[in-house]
């Protein structure tokens, strides 16, 4: 038997997040898995039919702990100590990255981040994770229990299995002293669909040459009903806000169509978009790495290609 504690997350609507459902699939893929799913705060009603043995609720995350996660870590740690699981699974989100690291070093446990595969045989847990910015893959065997892992978004298909877990509240934990305090949260206004949820993403890179060109991409994105992304080079140049960055240290997207304009396709960029259904590259350099990753491509100057592309898309959509 392999006992798994899966720490769930909810989306903006309060529903179980797609990435959590992906983790449910990963957890149930382990041999003889016995899965417990923990929610911070109340569990959404759909949690009652998750493919798990048990659903537990921990105390809700207070806004001033968000981003710091001292209390959240204490809650997860207390429950993990009572359950003594073989594997503790998180998503590689802001929450998952921090709580998993805090928990692992607090309890001197093994930790593997951003995994795209997890398996077990003969009592040992193994993971596969991209390394060197996505240029290579590494397989690790985890040498201590519990194995704490975070999973990359899109690595697994969301679980569609159902079950009838028991739902109960975990014992409440003591409140910990909050040393770092969140005093304000400033969010970029967003119009249209969230980058992570978009079916179409139009991303621009250094090849766009300046901020003005992003208006053209915004135009295309709105015709398609999608969102605008960017490479780190474009964000670092200040052409577009960092919240649009796609990649290893930006957002992970998996749209139906990812259109990369003036982006060379560095491994760190592809790390955020390689699970897209189709990548379309527009780049003037035919030797650019993006053409090794794309399904469709046009070699040429985006300034000459995009206007007719957008016009035709508009006609087709009309």
């Amino acid at each position: 038997m392999t006992t798994v504690l899966l720490v769930a997350e909810r989306d903006e609507q309060g529903e179980i997040s797609q990435t959590t459902l992906q983790a449910v699939a990963a957890a149930n893929g382990l041999t003889e898995a016995q899965v417990t799913i923990a929610f911070a705060g109340e569990a959404p009603s759909s949690a009652g039919s998750l493919a798990a043995e048990k659903v537990v609720t921990l105390s809700a995350i207070d806004a001033s702990d968000s981003g710091i996660y001292e209390q959240a870590t204490a809650d997860v740690a207390a429950f993990a100590a009572s359950m003594n699981p073989d594997v503790v699974m998180f998503n590689k989100s802001d929450f998952g990255s921090i709580v998993s690291a805090r928990l692992a070093f607090r309890t001197d446990s093994a930790l593997a981040a951003d995994c795209i595969g997890i398996s077990n045989a003969d009592g040992a847990v193994s993971v596969t994770r991209p390394v060197y910015g996505g240029s290579a893959l590494a397989e690790f065997e985890i040498r201590s229990t519990p194995a704490i892992v975070t999973l990359r978004a899109g690595a697994y298909e969301p679980s569609t299995e159902t079950g009838s877990p028991s739902v109960e509240a975990a014992d409440s934990t003591e409140s910990v002293e909050q040393r770092a305090q969140v005093t304000d949260t400033v969010a970029e206004a967003r119009d249209g669909v969230r980058l992570e949820d978009a079916n179409f993403v139009v991303s621009g890179g250094r090849g766009l040459g300046g901020p003005e060109a992003f208006h053209v991409l915004t135009d295309l994105a709105s015709v398609l009903g999608g969102a605008v992304g960017a490479s780190r080079a474009a964000c670092d140049a200040g052409w577009i806000d960092h919240s649009h960055q796609v990649g290893l240290t930006g957002k992970s997207v998996s749209p139906d169509v990812y259109i990369a304009v003036g982006i060379s396709g560095a491994s760190q960029h592809m790390a955020g978009c390689s699970s897209s259904r189709a990548i379309v590259a527009i780049n003037k350099d035919s030797t650019s790495n993006i053409f090794k990753e794309a399904r469709f491509g046009v070699v040429g100057d985006w300034e000459k290609i995009l206007p007719s592309f957008i016009a035709t898309v508009r006609e087709l959509k009309a």
């Binding site: 968000s66 981003g67 710091i68 802001d94 770092a180 305090q181 969140v182 005093t183 304000d184 949260t185 400033v186 969010a187 970029e188 967003r190 919240s243 957002k251």
Partner: peptide, 9 residues
Amino acid sequence: IPDGYQAIT
């Protein structure tokens, strides 16, 4: 944070 920033002391 993904869509902006937090002010923290």
